[in-house]
């Protein structure tokens, strides 16, 4: 069993990701994520202090479009996709807290 990630950390990550895990799943994921993270630690064998991180392989900059209005989607089409709609809006059950 790897110590790369604890059961509590997996539980916290699941909450952040809006996933519910059973106790059994929590055990399984703790072990599996631990093994993957353990493997990832082989990156630490290198001295990367002076390496500049690359988030993206695409070198082009300043991609912009002109400020031109283009047609929007038909509202009925869009709301027909919604699990629940009311008064031309997307309906959701009560929201417990303010947005951060």
């Amino acid at each position: 069993m790897s110590d790369a990630i604890s059961r509590d950390e997996v539980a916290k990550v699941a909450r952040l990701a809006r996933l519910i895990l059973s106790d059994t799943e929590l055990d399984i994921y703790t072990e599996q994520l631990g093994l993957i993270l353990e493997h990832a630690r082989d990156m630490n064998s290198l001295d990367l202090a002076d390496v500049i991180p690359t988030a993206h392989p695409f070198g082009v900059t300043n991609v912009v479009r002109e400020d031109v209005v283009t047609p929007s989607l038909d509202r009925d089409t869009v709301l027909a996709m919604a699990p629940d709609a009311q008064d031309h809006r997307f309906a959701v059950p009560r929201i417990l807290g303010e947005a951060p």
Binding site: L37, A40, M43, N44, L46, L48, I52, P53, T54, P57
Partner: peptide, 12 residues
Amino acid sequence: AYYGQALKVRTL
């Protein structure tokens, strides 16, 4: 430790 390190490996 993880994502940042991985981006550096990407550079390499």
